[in-house]
Write a protein that binds this DNA or RNA. Structure first.
Lengths: 211, 211
DNA sequence: ACCATAACGGTACTCCCGTCCCCTTAACGT
DNA sequence: ACGTTAAGGGGACGGGAGTACCGTTATGGT
């Protein structure tokens, strides 16, 4: 009895299809992503693409999952500003990348209506944020940031303006924008904007609640 | 000779179609927005919907334009924190609204691949940001914020985390989230994060210039 | 080496989205 | 009020996306 066959041909087909989908995504964008054309470019049966993925957003979701497996290690400079700037620049380079940029735009758009895309996106960012949070946690331990600062909130605060530019203003963020985002997050964090108490975190100064 | 006829029936048809589209958007989301069903719900000819709008994203775009005409006046409390919090709460309520929330999600998603949606979205936010920027400009004049602070950047910094939550983490922002966003932006602004000089705006903390 | 079968690939088919055609309705000028 | 003609509505049509069917390939266990 054979349960499944992920090896050999199946793996090659998946790789071919994902590469073709990534090419088309970079060339024409998500709106023009036609499964039939993907099959042609991948030199694969049209039926196969429909059977294994079924929809364009499912294909793009698989593309993200595939990409997520090659994750870069975070920086460890021991300095909050440098770490946050490194993080911001990583995000910025990703969004500006001719292949990854369109992929993320497609996934984010798809996540607004497709549950699979939304799940993959959240999983991806949970991993990413979890990977970079220690930068902030260590800064708290060093006394660079007030006790009780929420590491995940700081990391997300770095990314937020970059995504805002990409999605709302339609301007792909550049490196100065990344540095500004990192700087703003660092300054806000130092001022205690990301201290998570039970109540509101609007006292800014008097914070002395160790975990 | 008659050039155009925007009155009477035409206006009524537009109103009926937009209302039906908004209903369906709120009920089923953008993915299920079928022009045929919109026509049925609006009790309007299917041909008419296709002739005047053509695509679902064009319909949603018109919906945004229609909604933008009823814009709320900004608050003028004379206090930066209160103004920014009012702005954040306005954005939060919009995104959490059962009708406007799905609309914005659809428009933002559509703007990643449809030029018309992107233009409408940018126009909408240019108006919104321009309307609220005086809050920041006045705070600069009062000396609450450093000279050279970019008003638009501050306003956008308030919104960015809320959109990040909505689109990336998939969590619709609540009122505490709005207050946190406003607070973080205010603290960063006071620390000079949004001063736009020719070079880098990182005078606040130690920084090395990179060659 | 051999077999059972997971997975692929080609083709025919279906169904429905979007368009076309043409008649009907009702704005707007006079 | 009356005529001209934008604009709307019904129905038929075409095309292409997605599916069903079934034969073919090659994987993985024995």
């Amino acid at each position: 009895m054979v349960a499944s066959r992920p090896g050999g041909r199946t793996a090659r087909v998946r790789a071919d299809v994902l590469r073709a989908a990534g090419d088309l995504l970079a060339e024409q964008g998500f709106a023009q992503l036609d499964l039939g054309e993907v099959a042609r470019r991948a030199e694969v049966g049209r039926t196969t693409v429909y059977r294994r993925w079924g929809t364009a957003i499912a294909l793009v979701t698989d593309l993200l999952i595939d990409m997520a497996e090659q994750s870069l290690p975070r920086s460890r400079t021991g300095d909050l500003d440098q770490d946050l700037r490194a993080n911001a620049r990583l995000v910025q380079r990703t969004l500006a990348d001719p292949r990854q940029g369109p992929l993320f735009k497609a996934i984010i758009a798809g996540a607004t209506w497709d549950e699979g895309a939304a799940t993959a996106l959240r999983t991806f960012y949970r991993t990413r944020v979890g990977e970079w949070s220690p930068c902030v946690a260590e800064a708290v331990e060093r006394g660079e940031l007030p006790a009780g600062t929420d590491p995940a909130a700081v990391i997300q605060a770095v990314s937020a303006p970059l995504y805002y530019d990409l999605l709302i203003t339609g301007r792909v963020p550049d490196e100065p924008a990344a540095d500004r985002a990192a700087n703003a997050a660092a300054l806000a964090a130092r001022a205690g904007a990301f201290v998570d108490l039970a109540g509101h975190a609007v006292e800014t100064s008097d914070i002395e609640r160790p975990a």
